[in-house]
Design a binder for these strands. Structure first.
Lengths: 179, 179
DNA sequence: TTGGGCATGTAAGATGTTACATGATTAT
DNA sequence: ATAATCATGTAACATCTTACATGCCCAA
């Protein structure tokens, strides 16, 4: 069984759940802003993927009126079906992480190594900046209670991301104190 | 500035902290068993990397006595220096995750969608199996208190991984109940 | 009307994955 | 002796990253 490609399904999900048709730029920005915590993508992946998905009949492409530059994409029946199938199928892989900070910590054997506090402080700074971004998203997107009901999945994973980041910062500070 | 390559530094770290010289197979297994939570690698990446690092003078290669098949690698002065420099430099990138389960949750808008419980149960099963593996590692590696002091970084990240996995399972169960 | 920014796109190289190949060791 | 397993390695392919290219749009 060939490995499932994820990016096209993400694109389907974004197109399907947006009110109007969307452009490649909008899709790229959306992934980076809203689900960058769980998947990463560059615009140079998105455009070829859109082309391919159009050829496969998962989506349709329309020129933007009064605009030669941009194109908008909508989902087809087939695309909707692919998306629904994908969402229905529980996945059997653990989340994968690439975490360079933790690797460095791992390879330092001595509890009192001078480099540990420096590494940890840098990481705390990074996480604080990221946390700020996440909290802004939550304030912007979920101002009223019904927003939560209308985008339940989004709400779930955003609150979860915030909790995990806070937790990680807390752990780092605590680890610092243990010196 | 070209992007830092991670794999060679992981290999340096493993060779440097092991008692004796190690083989490619041992390195691959070690990464998958001990730091698979934070980095992933296939053996088909390791062997070419070892060749390259040997050519660059970061490590040295010795045939295993009475064994035509296996080779052992040790670290050079240069390699040690590269490793120390890498460990000393705080990194400026957030940990990256690829988490398909969370993506699927994200794209389901309806709080009462029938597919959510199925997805969550499958994920809980996965995480439970993984947690078991992590707990076994902790029992095997850190039976006595001095083990903790001798491999402080390893201890830190293993306990942290266990805590995070438990936490995730707890959150999933709680989310299930909220239906 | 022209210059800068922007959305789209391409290209090249690096990295990661899967499958297969080879020969040595081990078990039967 | 033969078969199965294992460590090493290669090959083909997919994906990701970075840089560059193109031409439209808008504002000065």
């Amino acid at each position: 069984m060939p490995k499932q490609r994820i990016l096209p399904h993400i694109i389907l999900g974004i197109i399907a759940t947006s009110e109007a048709e969307v452009t490649g730029k909008q899709i790229t920005d959306y992934v980076q802003r809203e689900i960058g915590e769980y998947w990463q993508v560059a615009h140079s992946q998105v455009y070829p993927e859109l082309k391919r998905m159009t050829e496969d009949g998962w989506i349709v492409c329309h020129p933007v009126p009064n605009n030669e530059k941009e194109k908008q994409y909508g989902i087809t029946e087939l695309g909707l079906e692919m998306l629904e199938n994908w969402l229905s199928e529980p996945n059997h892989e653990l989340p994968l992480q690439k975490d360079i900070f933790t690797l460095k910590l791992f390879f330092i054997k001595d509890k009192d190594d001078q480099r540990i506090p420096k590494l940890i402080h840098a990481q705390i700074d990074l996480l604080n900046k990221h946390l700020e971004h996440l909290e802004q998203r939550k304030n912007n997107l979920f101002a009223s209670p019904e927003d939560m009901l209308n985008r339940y999945g989004h709400y779930l994973i955003l609150t979860r991301a915030i909790a995990r980041n806070r937790d990680q910062i807390k752990w780092l500070k605590q680890t610092l104190k243990m010196k």
